[in-house]
């Protein structure tokens, strides 16, 4: 299935969870927050939250800023 992550297209196996996406993006150990279709998915739900065709995923982190 196709999803969009931070504006870029990604292909994932059917039924992949956010935890699977984290591994695929090679950011499994990093501190990030997820939004799927505009709604935050809490860390506790990553293992069970299934992604669906066309989902828009945002992955954010903390960077330098004032």
């Amino acid at each position: 299935m196709h999803v969009t992550v931070n504006g870029n297209p990604y292909q994932l196996p059917e039924g992949a969870t956010l935890a699977v996406l984290l591994v695929a993006l090679e950011i499994a150990g990093q501190r990030v927050a997820f939004e799927v279709n505009g709604t935050i998915v809490p860390r506790s739900q990553r293992d069970v939250h299934p992604l669906r065709e066309g989902d828009r995923v945002e992955v954010v982190t903390a960077i330098g800023g004032g």
Partner: peptide
């Protein structure tokens, strides 16, 4: 300390 919240830089060296 203040930080900004931005899209993760996917594809950078983990």
């Amino acid at each position: 300390v203040t930080v900004a919240i931005r899209r993760s830089n996917l594809g950078q060296d983990p």
